[in-house]
Nucleic acid binder design. Structure first.
Length: 822
DNA sequence: ATATACACGGATCCCCTATTTCC
DNA sequence: GGAAATAGGGGATCCGTGTA
């Protein structure tokens, strides 16, 4: 039969010793289709370059005869061919060695100890990645396919009979078609339980939300349930009902929030307890979990997506939310929040509470559904660029994304893939140590008027592209007509690295990401909203990670020299821009990595833009400097110790009165809300008025309030994240002490928990903060001295210092009559 | 295990010296 | 008077969280 088809979920199976890809997707009529396809499996043996034809023929013959026994299974090399390939950009002769089964390739590779073979490559990709590269059945792209329909066929061991799809097709041909629209069927879910530890409590209810579908299934009954509530007998039936509804809705994506770490493993654990099967897969299989620290839950045929993971890698860096809790993320992207409901153990809930609980549960899924819709375009975009199944796209980290993007495109360059580093290689790389980073200009503290700020577009990536930097293009020796890095200090020596002018695959590939980044940034500029900003940032992240990837010890294409060179160029271009700006007569206030801010010195905007154009004319390749914005005022302060200007800390106000605050305590979550609010007020007021008068009065008022204990304790809570298991801490910090208290109080904590506490008055004479900390709900009075001198004062002291005001003197000199009201 | 370096700043740790306490 | 305990200064280190 012929149909159109969009691949969504990828899986594979073995049949009669061979590998087959099993791809679940849809056609445009919404029918669910499974296609079964195979591809040749092979890897490469790269030959030493001095071999004559006779030797190679002999070697080929020898390889073709390889037979081996893998755990009792007989297997052999199917065939072997000689090819002209590229490896790390260099021409090589390589033998393509075909194996019967993908799993055998390691063992076959191990048999190739012949001296003629220089390297073995290409046997460490996942089968799915290999398959997609080989047959080009790219995820979430439309195809016109034809093939034989399997209907109760015994081919492949009767695979189609156990599969809940409309058609199971043995693929014969597939052609990509330009169609784009695809509205996936989505079902979001969320569970409520009586204990947080996986499987330790009863599951009380499950909510399900999809397009025109809302349901809360529960066995906890009350009067007058909402119309979306459906009752079941008990927890066991709840689990069955859940599976039933998933089957009925038949979603392409089953989406949760932190569901890899909570909802799905919980459901599985409870099902195990009742000895029932959680038949969620299209083949009625149960969800499978990866081993390791970070659980991932996989359901056959339905893509299980844990939105939290995708948001974390692709967006977290650029989000306002301070935690990635559903509540905060929903607030930022949907302008909606969780329903207010104080969760208690079900035994403590009153009849009337249940309705609220149902609603609360439902709404979590509603939020997840909303978020999925918001992030769907990005998941789609990432999937299309990187060409990995969306299951991986939604979970992998940035280095894997970059790496997969490269692997899926190597064929365009006739390149043999590099292997993953071994454990020893990783240790070696770590030993070399870090490379010198970017340049940060030390600002002179002060309040400045009329500023302009320039920044480079995707600086590192544009440098990689323009100077052709990569592991493969690195030249061993200096050559004429090559790209030459600035001088780099390596140990005590100064060296330069050289890169070929012949375009390498890595820089060429990055261009694609670079251009997408530009496109989405422009989209944001013309249509600024949360979502276009997020998308712009997502590609900013991807683009920015290209350099991080090169310097990442676990990367296939890691290169210390390339990484050092990229950063040397970053410093060079930033410093050059600073110098040119100063030479033009501007006063450079600060610069950090890829940006320069300076006062306009009476120059018109037109003149500034002309200057910018001139700067751009002098930049190589795709490097581009752009105007970030014009600013009415900007404030820089000194560091806490000493008089030097603090780097990475500033506040500016643009001509539409938008305030941009970087690095200040205002934006740091490990300061109490009061400090942050006060500093925020002060910064904004000063930027607006151009002087400190109003803010000083405000601070005095706050100080008075603190002393009179008028401050709400809620505003004094300090939040610090536990970054590792308690046992690994060498220092006994306040948040570690609080974490221990939490354990005593049976509050579950783990690495990642946000620890909350306040500093209280204590009788003891200890000066250590950790001896004064209390849990938010613990009774006690806040420590006036601490909040004055270690929270409020440090947050605003440096700001007033810019105006020559010593807040410390004012605060301590309260007995002076001139400050009687204080 | 899962992108990089630079930077701030709080809190503790640790060593040293001066002062206080105790016998 | 001398030993032990304590206070406090200051740099090193740990730790978390920012900017880019």
């Amino acid at each position: 039969m012929k149909t159109d088809f969009i691949p969504v979920d990828y899986d594979y199976f073995d049949f009669q010793g061979r590998n087959y890809a099993k791809i679940i997707g849809r056609n445009s009529k919404g029918k669910r289709i499974c296609i079964i396809d195979s591809c040749p499996v092979y890897f490469w043996a790269i030959l030493k370059d001095n071999l004559n034809k006779k030797k190679i023929d002999k070697l080929l013959k020898k390889i073709r005869e390889i037979k081996l026994d893998v755990k009792g299974r007989q297997t052999k090399v199917e065939t072997a061919e000689l090819h002209e390939k590229n490896y790390l950009g260099k021409k090589v002769k390589a033998i393509k060695i075909f194996a019967t089964n993908y799993k055998d390739m390691h063992d076959v590779a191990d048999k190739l100890g012949m001296p003629e073979i220089e390297k073995r490559r290409g046997y460490d990709l996942s089968f799915i990645t290999h398959y997609i590269i080989e047959n080009k059945i790219d995820p979430l792209c439309w195809y016109e396919i034809s093939g034989e329909v399997l209907n109760n066929s015994d081919e492949f061991g009767g695979i189609d009979t156990n599969l809940d799809v409309d058609f199971c097709i043995k693929l014969e041909s597939a052609k990509k078609i330009p169609k784009t629209e695809f509205n996936p069927r989505v079902l979001c879910y969320d569970i409520e339980t009586d204990a947080l530890e996986i499987g330790k409590g009863e599951i009380l209810m499950i909510s399900l939300v999809g397009e025109n579908f809302k349901k809360v299934i529960t066995w906890k009954k009350t009067k007058n349930p909402q119309e979306y509530v459906e009752y079941v007998k008990d927890e066991e039936e709840l689990l069955n009902k859940f599976c039933e509804y998933v089957k009925k809705v038949s979603p392409d994506f089953l989406v949760g929030y932190f569901s890899d770490g909570f909802d799905l493993p919980y459901l599985k654990a409870r099902a195990d307890k009742f000895k029932i099967k959680l038949k969620l897969g299209l083949d009625n299989s149960q969800p499978k979990f990866s081993r390791g620290v970070n659980l991932t839950g996989k359901i056959k045929g339905i893509v299980h997506i844990d939105l939290l993971k995708f948001i974390r890698t692709a967006y977290a860096q650029y989000m306002k939310s301070e935690t990635l809790s559903l509540n905060e993320v929903a607030k930022e992207f949907l302008n909606d929040t969780k329903k207010p409901f104080k969760i208690k153990h079900s035994s403590e809930l009153k009849q009337k509470d249940w309705n609220e609980y149902y609603e609360y549960n439902l709404h979590d899924s509603v939020l997840t559904f909303g978020l999925f819709q918001k992030f769907w375009p990005d998941l789609l975009e990432f999937t299309k660029i990187i060409q990995e199944p969306i299951f991986n796209i939604s979970r992998f980290g940035l280095s894997k994304h970059i790496e997969n993007y490269i692997l899926h495109n190597l064929h365009k360059f006739n390149e043999i893939p590099e292997k993953q580093p071994t454990y020893d290689e990783i240790s070696q790389r770590k030993k070399i140590g870090s490379v010198k980073g970017a340049f940060v200009y030390e600002p002179t503290p002060g309040l400045y008027e009329n500023l302009a700020m320039f920044d480079f577009t995707s600086m590192h990536t544009s440098i990689i592209i323009s100077m052709n930097i990569s592991k493969a293009t690195l030249l061993e020796t200096k050559q004429k007509n090559s790209y030459e890095s600035p001088e780099i200090e390596e140990g005590n020596k100064k060296v330069k690295y050289y890169f070929s002018k012949e375009k390498g695959f890595f820089p060429l590939l990055l261009k694609d990401i670079f251009e997408k980044r530009k496109e989405f940034k422009a989209e944001y500029k013309t249509n600024p909203n949360r979502m276009t900003l997020a998308r712009s940032n997502a590609f900013k992240v991807l683009s920015a990670s290209a350099h991080g990837y090169v310097g990442f010890f676990g990367a296939r294409y890691y290169s210390h020299e390339a990484s050092a060179s990229i950063l040397a160029f970053v410093r060079k271009f930033n410093i050059e821009t600073i110098k040119k700006t100063q030479k033009k007569g501007f006063n450079v206030i600060f610069a950090d990595t890829d940006s320069v801010a300076f006062t306009r010195e009476g120059k018109s905007k037109k003149q500034i833009l002309e200057f910018l154009k001139k700067l751009n004319d002098e930049l190589p390749g795709v490097m581009h400097l752009e105007l970030e914005d014009f600013f009415k005022r900007g404030l820089w302060v000194s560091t806490r110790k000493g008089t030097a200007g603090a780097k990475k800390k500033y506040a500016m106000i643009d001509e539409d009165n938008n305030v941009k605050i970087r690095g200040f305590e205002t934006v740091r979550r490990d300061w109490c809300q009061l400090s942050r609010d006060v500093q925020n007020y002060v910064l904004r007021q000063i930027l607006k008025d151009g002087n400190e008068k109003k803010s000083l009065e405000y601070v005095k008022k706050i100080v008075k309030n603190i002393k009179q204990r008028k401050i709400n304790k809620q505003d004094l809570i300090i939040k610090t994240q536990l970054k590792k298991p308690l046992s690994e801490y060498k220092a006994t910090t306040p948040h570690v002490v609080v974490a221990k208290k939490m354990i005593e109080n049976k509050i579950p904590i783990s690495a990642g928990t946000l620890i909350k506490y306040y500093v209280s008055e204590t009788k003891g004479k200890s000066k250590l903060v950790r001896d004064k900390v209390k849990l938010p709900e613990e009774p006690g009075e806040y420590n006036i001295d601490y909040y004055l001198n270690r929270q409020i004062l440090p947050a605003v002291e440096n700001i007033f210092q810019v105006f020559g005001i010593s807040l410390k003197e004012i605060m301590e000199g309260k007995k002076q009559t001139t400050l009687g009201d204080f």
